[in-house]
Design a protein around this nucleic acid. Structure first.
Lengths: 242, 242
DNA sequence: TACCGTTCTTCTCAGTTCGAGTTTATCTCA
DNA sequence: TGAGATAAACTCGAACTGAGAAGAACGGTA
């Protein structure tokens, strides 16, 4: 039994059962209107051949820095990504070989390039979240936590702007909500709401150079406003129980 | 440099710089209408004599179990507490002696007994959150994260019912919001809202045996309903920027 | 015992927001 | 040139919110 007191007295930490601390990153982006997650294929046991979230050991760095580094190693240069801590998973037995405590992170980015830029990440690829099941370790749970967090944060933060380019149309923003929520908001009400929430978007004055592929007028271009939270919130039609 | 590949090949984990994993618990309760947090006084360096959040090493148990165990050691038997994971803090240097990654937990409980029941927790005590500054390590940050989480969760979950007894009055529930938000909701509107949100509370049919200390009619008694989220939410007057 | 102040509970009412649908103008493609 | 599609604005009833007030029940005190 190890008490805090022993620890504070300078008890040699190497005498304890070793614990490894890693970060796992749930990276989401939208490609062709479908929400995708970045996964890597495992080469070794356990779970060889299975898909897993990218991740790795925490070094002499903050947890945030570790997550950013792992992400950069998988995807090459990172444009502007939103990164936030999600949940920490540490059940004994989640890795069959030793105690591993994993700090999960959630990242959002606008249409990232195909991975395979980094070193040991040749097997990394984007997978539609609907197809991302049967992942290694407890990564199904981690991904589920990330998705639910993303869905909830769209409601009360301007997070959707992290999925689109610097300048975007209201329709593109609506596409983010559609992809993440799996349900298309009412176009007219969405438009009214986005423009009425203070600080959500700001008008650039410019418009797109042409209309939509199937017709329609040119649409106005906006950029992200300064708000950190949306007030009032943009609620989804059917909030999840849980 | 330690890569994931080396780890997966069975690299000896004891060769790594040791990392300790602990849990710290932000335990909140309301006493005499004031929000209190459970703190312990540190006996040793560093931060000897300073107040800190209770916490300790994670053993052969899940993180949730570790948090519950630490809480039980500080407060004795636990009636019904709500416990949830908060954030993980792992900056290098947050503990001056070695790398410590702390998984912070948030606990809510109805008027807990005075601590000093457990073993090494003779110095544990309830402190009004307004007085809980200058804590050891980075516990000021941890506490701040816990408070903001608590404030936000009162809006969209029935968490307030975790602060009161099994049977409670609307006024007692309103007292929870007042203590946590630092602002008293409009009594009439609060009453209407609580009764209108499905699953927040259910009527017991009973009333209190006498009126308030300074007069007023007996009030009806309710118990917590089955809802996990409040819809529509009970928004605070002035949501925080951040 | 009668009264006063307090509190619970319900009600009122105007302003705001929301969901659903419609209208108008603009644009692409055939 | 016409058909279909879309952006943006508008309409309207329902629902919700904030602020205040009314009525009833109760504890303490004169």
């Amino acid at each position: 039994m190890v008490t805090e007191r022993e620890f504070l007295d300078g008890y040699d930490p190497r005498a304890y059962p070793a614990v490894a601390v890693t970060v796992d990153v749930v990276t989401l982006t939208i490609r062709d209107g479908v929400l995708h997650v970045l996964l890597v294929e495992r080469g070794e046991q356990p779970f060889a051949g299975r898909l897993a979230l990218p991740g790795g050991f925490v070094r002499e760095e903050t947890l945030d820095e570790a997550a950013l580094r792992e992400l950069a190693e998988e995807t090459g240069i990172l444009p502007r990504v939103h990164l936030e801590q999600l949940t920490t998973f540490g059940d004994p037995g989640r890795d069959p070989r030793m105690r591993v405590v994993s700090v999960a992170y959630l990242a959002f980015a606008p249409r990232l390039p195909d991975p395979n830029v980094g070193g040991d990440a040749a097997a990394a690829r984007w997978v539609p979240v609907g197809d991302a099941t049967g992942l290694a370790f407890d990564h199904d749970r981690v991904l589920a936590a990330g998705l639910e967090r993303a869905r909830a944060k769209l409601e009360y933060t301007p997070l959707a702007t992290a999925f689109v380019d610097d300048e975007f149309t209201i329709a593109q923003l609506r596409g983010v909500y559609t992809a993440v929520w799996g349900e298309e908001p009412h176009a007219g009400n969405f438009h009214r709401k986005v423009l009425s929430v203070p600080g959500f978007v700001e008008d650039t004055g410019a418009t797109t150079s042409r209309g939509g592929e199937r017709g329609g007028p040119r649409s106005r271009l906006y950029r992200a406003g300064g708000a950190r939270i949306l007030h009032p919130a943009l609620l989804r039609p059917n909030p999840q129980e849980q």
